[in-house]
Amino acid sequence: MSILVDAQTRLVVQGITGREGAFHATRNKAYGTQVVAGVTPGKAGQDVEGIPVFNTVADAVDETGANTAMVFVPPRFATDALFEAIESGVETIVCITEGIPAHDMMRVYTHLRRGDQTLIGPNCPGVITPGVASVGIMPTQVFAPGRVGLLSRSGTLTYQISKELAMFDIGQSTVVGIGGDPVVGSSFIDILSRFEADPDTDLVVMVGEIGGAEEEKAAEYIADNMSTPVVAYIAGFQAPPGKQMGHAGAIITGSSGTAQAKKDALEEKGVRVGTNPTEVASLVKDHLAMSINR
């Protein structure tokens, strides 16, 4: 088992005829993901490497039974694409697009939360269940099948930590990039709860960074609701206050939201926090060894 993405995933790619959309849809398909459709208005009837293109998401869902949508549409059209995906009824939407205005995402998020569909992102690298399916832009060679769940606000840091885990031959059940924007569809808690319910995830690595209070909320959640152990990493101890660091979300305001505040909140709830990616992998290794000995 795994979470969010698996062998039953039937993917429709919105923006499939764009350069990035075509490249990554093709790569996802080559990895083993069932990429059943693409959408670009006005291009119905064409195909991208054998993936049929439709004018609307609704048409793609009707014709192919797609249950997951990936959004590769430029920011100024992405909000419309997200609403279209929600209305098509797909269970899961993964939005890769970076640069969607916060006001647009507030409206999308509020609408989404009135139903029971799942949105991952925006501004995220996607979701991969190693060896089974990849939906997004992650470099698949970094990941291997295993029993550690990984969730992160940062793409490249996700790869770094997976690489460190690989040094100890530790693979992943599913890897989820939740995205770095101030408004993302799924929070740490949303994904932690899925890993907690997944019988094939023995341990979870949560990778946070400065800004917001999601890591602090996750600390409370872990203490109250999780039996699966969690190891955390927080980036940004040396980040200057009040500077924007590429992710609109990574803004510190005042004292709350600092890396130290997040580390303290997690450790107070018994979550081990690694000081660098290498140490995170060692902590995971120790944890797994302990649970085997028990």
Binding site: S152, R153, S154, G155, T156, L157, T158, Q160, G180, V207, E209, I210, Y233, A235, G236, F237, Q238, A239, M245, G246, H247, A250, A259, T275, N276, P277
Partner: peptide, 17 residues
């Protein structure tokens, strides 16, 4: 010089460590 905000922040931290 790094690529991606998370990795860059992590690099700052590792340099300080």
């Amino acid at each position: 010089l790094g690529n991606g905000a998370g990795l860059v922040m992590s690099t700052l931290d590792v340099v300080a460590l």
